[in-house]
Structure formats: C-alpha cells, structure tokens
Write a protein that binds this DNA or RNA. Structure first.
Lengths: 216, 216
DNA sequence: AAGTGAATCCCTGAAAACAGGGACTAAAAA
DNA sequence: TTTTTAGTCCCTGTTTTCAGGGATTCACTT
C-alpha cells in the first residue's frame, strides 16, 4: 500500500506537558512523524476533514478533553476516517469506558502510568495492524466482564442523565422539575429509576456516580 | 556555595509516561541531572533520608499519588530537608490546595497543561532562588483570596470529616450513628453544621465536597 | 477565671426523599 | 405488527433530611 514505512501520527491531549513528553519520546523514532498536536477532539476532526488527502496512520488521544473528549473523538474517527488507527492513553481504567471504546473499535488502550517502553510497544503493535491493550487494562476488562452487575451495561437515557446531572448539582426535585418543565412526579420517577439502575441508596450515591462519570 | 552550576533534581509522579516525558525534556538541559524518579512520596523521602550527603536542588512532584501524595511530600520535605526546592505540577488548580501548598512554602506550581517552555522557565526560576507560579495559577489564587467565602479557610474537625466521609459513602444518619457509636441526633447536628460550613444545600453537595477533597 | 471551640445530645415542624406500586403515549426495535 | 423502550404523570405511605432552635461537658486559651 504505502511507498515508505513512514508513519504519520496525531496527538490529542489538553495537557500540553504530556504532549511535549510524547513528542520527546517519538522524536527518537525516525520513522514516525507527528503531523498535529491538538488539545481537543474538534481540532483533530477539523484537521482530518481539511486534509483528506493526507494519510494519517495513528491518533494517540487522551480521554478527558474539553469540547470533544476522546470517547467521542474515537467514535467520530472510526465512522468517518476508517484508515486512522486510534490509541487511547488515559489516567483511569473504568471497565465501562473501555468496553464502550472497544465497541467503537479503538485499536489500543494504555494507562498513563505505563512506561515509555510499553507506549512504544503499543504504538508499534497498532501500526503493524494489531490491537494493543495493556495487561492492566485487560485485567480491568475481564473484571468488568465477569462482574455480574456490570454485565448488563448501565445505560442511561438522555433524560436520566439530565436529571442525574442536576441532582448532583444540588437541585431539589421541585427545582429540577421547574428547570426541565416537567412534573415533580416525573422527576421522582427518574430519581427512583436511577437509584435502582445504578444500584445506589440515595442522593449521595447518585452524586458519586455522576461525578465519577463526568455527568456533574 | 556550589562548585558547579549543575543541578540535581528528583521527579515524583505515579504516571510513568509523564515521568518519561519530563525526563525527555530535561535531558536536553545539560546542567540538570535527574537523580531519582519515584512514583510516590515515600520513595522520595526514603531516598533523601538515606542519601543525606547528596545535594538535591529540586523536587518536581505531582499531587495525586498513592501512599504519600504531593501535598504531604512537600510538607515533609520543607520541614526535614530545607535546601530542597519544590515544584508541584498538577492537573487541577484548586485555590484551597494551592493555598495550603504556599503555606507549606512550596516554590512553584504549574498546571499540567503548561507548555514545555513554561515548565523550563519555572524550573530555571526556582533553581535561581525565586518562586514560580503560572499566570493561570496566580489567577486561581487571587480568585480564591478575593472570594469572600473562601477567605475564612474551611477547616473541618476530625469528627466532621468522619461523618462527611460516611455520608458520601451512602450511609444514612442512623447507620453513621451506629458506626460511630453516637446518637442519631449527634449525626444530625454534624450534618447540619457541615451543610452550613461548606455552604452546600444537601447530601449531594456534601458528597461532592467529600469526593473533591478526597474524603470519600 | 472567663471564654472559646469541639464534641455530644435533644426538640419541633416542614420539606424532601424514598419505596413500591400503576398508567398512558409515542417511537423504536424485533 | 407486536413488543419494547423512553418519556411522562400520578398515588399512598414511610423515612429521612433540613432548618432553626437549645443545652451540656471537656479541654484548651486568654
């Protein structure tokens, strides 16, 4: 397919220092060129849309980013730019997150406390056409799989997320109802369902979940 | 004081990749040697205690680390190894955190989304004897200062922290009372005081505070 | 010796949350 | 086309939280 074995990569992370680190590491790799470094997903998509002729081999992205996060970015890329491989490098390993990413055909997932060596291994593996998930991630995935509760993937509807978000923001039921132009009974139903779905006991548990899942 | 203008630094961060990045950046600085990279505060202290004869000029540390975090590490170093300068590099800029750090005589604070250039500037400034706080941090500090509410530093007592922690863990008032061998009225008093002190409205707010301040 | 803060316990009444139901509609999926 | 899902609203009770009081003891400070 390609004339040379030279690879073009894009890095997306809102922590400039981390990007600098990655850049430093990759400049020692003569066959890898960093085509773009972006601080959010939108920048990456914009670049890809404008430079459709360029062949980008790999996107290395963080998960938590402003505007468009890594999750959305991966999904967008996999649907619009199929040739681009994706490697997610993140702080936290949440089984649910990883599961969603794999469903969106991510090519690899690394924790940020991986060594440089492992990072390069992941990049090489992916560039050569295989997927790479670090041992720690694989364990997290298996744990998430076998964990009976998490088997049936907790999926919240738009409305549920809205309500949950407002709950975590200290709104009372009545205030949420006013905010969303709904009856307070409706909000009470949602709260009840959320408590059941998320298997928590009260507002504290809901708030916890919301914060841990970036819904707050 | 010193024979040469050569500086010895220690890096502490549990994200190996970030450490790698920092290392890459610093290897371009001929007069800076990385003496140790550690993944938590304890390692650093242990090293300093064993190698008391070595002159370490600077510690670059993250805040969130297992075992001993950057906050505690900074405090320990400033009380036991006065000659060591400290530069905190963290994700989040919480006025309260920064305030505590400055009270513990930290020499600098950078956000992880600073550029390589700013990182080097901070390091140089500190090595030359001054303190460095990035513009973004200074703003956060000033905001925290002028913010009338946060002026009178929120200090929680041991008991309050215990109760708050259990609240965030979804315990009901009665359960907390049982756990701590107290009357439920007592716990209600604590909850009331916490809501007033932390200026929140309900359990959700308390839970939020607890999580954001690592009390959960 | 008086004052302060922390820790403990109690009360009342209103508001909100929680538990466990049911029911209707519209849209999407099977 | 039947079934499922999301979204909406309602009811009855019970429990818990919340607001706003007060009070005692103990230790530490002034």
């Amino acid at each position: 397919m390609k004339e040379s074995n030279h690879y073009q990569v894009i890095i997306a992370d809102d922590h400039a220092m981390f990007v600098d680190g990655l850049r430093s590491i990759l400049t020692n790799e003569p066959d890898i060129t960093i085509k773009l470094t972006a601080s959010n997903g939108e920048e990456v998509l914009k670049y890809l849309q404008i430079n459709k002729d360029e062949k980008i081999d790999l996107l290395i992205t963080d998960l938590n980013m402003p505007k468009m996060d890594g999750m959305a970015l991966n999904k967008a890329i996999k649907s619009q730019f199929y040739g681009v491989k994706t490697l997610v490098v993140s702080m936290m390993e949440k089984p649910n997150t990883i599961k969603t990413l794999t469903e969106d055909n991510v090519n690899g997932y690394l924790s940020k406390n991986s060594e440089k060596k492992e990072l390069l291994k992941a990049i090489r593996t992916i560039l050569e056409g295989e997927n790479y998930f670090s041992p720690a991630i694989q364990q997290a995935l298996i744990k998430g799989m076998t964990d009976a509760k998490k088997m049936q993937e907790i999926k919240l509807t738009k409305r549920e997320k809205e309500v949950l978000s407002l709950i975590a923001k200290e709104y009372t039921t009545q205030e949420i109802a006013d905010e969303l132009f709904l009856s307070k009974h409706t909000i009470e139903s949602y709260r009840k369902n959320l408590i059941a779905k998320l298997q928590v006991r009260n507002l504290a548990g809901l708030t916890r979940y919301a914060i841990e899942n970036n819904l707050a």
